[in-house]
């Protein structure tokens, strides 16, 4: 169960390879969390983190999860819930950033990114939400991005998938009011990590650890949207309202 200060006892991560999700789980396991269930494309790559959490006293279980196969999502999520009892928190963490130039040349690759980031997240989130409704509680943490707040010329495929995901997550959160469950949308800025290796950082660049700290603080405070770093909330309020021409110049890299 989630407690009065936002700590949870069990977590399901879909996209277990995500560095941000792993940093969040590090903190959850440092608190009350004793059950970690990981769904990932390549579960063998997760053994080091799994060992770390086991050493900290958690039970860690993992299963193969394919974001691109929505038909498999409900069964995979059901199996995780059935095997571990109540899941207090689920993190939708899978997604690909991709490279806009590649997408421009390969529309199918772009569509695959959209299928993973948006379509897959929709089916996975709904699968979790139906179990949350049954158990009467649960927090769905959705990793969105500031890239979805306003699409940029140099990553609009990724940005648009996050825009769709963000809108979906907000709507789902509103639909879940009264069910004991809730959705928390996380909007990080540029995050240094595997996904962004070799890229030039954007202003207010952050790290998975800092994003995770912001998430834990936001959960304790009962936030529905968590910006990381927090300054991006006012920054993007301005960015969202800039005239197109100005935005094009500001966002050009």
């Amino acid at each position: 169960m989630r407690d009065a200060v936002g700590a949870v006892q069990s977590v399901l991560v879909l996209g277990g390879g995500s560095e941000i999700a792993q940093a969040i789980v590090d903190r959850l396991v440092g608190g009350r969390c004793r059950t970690v269930v990981l769904g990932a494309r390549d579960i063998t790559a997760l053994s080091p983190v799994a060992a770390r959490w086991q050493a900290a006293g958690a039970t860690v279980d993992s299963f193969a999860f394919d974001a691109l196969d929505p038909a498999s999502h409900q069964a995979a999520v059901d199996a995780a819930f059935d095997a571990h009892g109540d899941i207090d928190m689920a993190i939708i963490a899978f997604g690909v950033l991709g490279d806009q130039a590649t997408f421009d040349a390969d529309p199918v690759a772009a569509a695959d990114a959209a299928r993973a980031n948006y379509v897959g997240a929709v089916s996975a989130s709904l699968a979790v939400a139906s179990r949350f409704r049954t158990q009467g509680h649960g927090t769905l943490l959705v990793l969105s991005s500031v890239a979805g707040v306003r699409a940029r010329a140099d990553n609009y495929v990724y940005g648009s998938t996050k825009a769709g995901l963000d809108a979906f997550a907000q709507g789902l959160g509103d639909a879940l009011v009264g069910t004991g469950s809730r959705v928390v949308v996380v909007r990080p800025g540029f995050v240094h990590g595997r996904m962004t290796e070799g890229m030039q950082p954007a202003p207010f660049a952050t790290t998975p650890d800092k994003v995770a700290d912001a998430v834990v603080a936001g959960l304790a405070k009962g936030r529905e949207v968590i910006w990381a770093p927090a300054v991006l909330a006012p920054v993007f309020t301005v960015m969202r309202n800039l005239p197109r021409g100005v935005w094009r110049r500001v966002s050009a890299r």
């Binding site: 169960m1 509680h137 009264g178 069910t179 004991g180 469950s181």
Partner: peptide, 16 residues
């Protein structure tokens, strides 16, 4: 009816 309940401290609501 299904309703969210909390204790007097109004933290961690769950539905029943």
């Amino acid at each position: 009816h299904t309703a969210e309940l909390t204790g007097w401290g109004r933290t961690a609501p769950t539905a029943s």
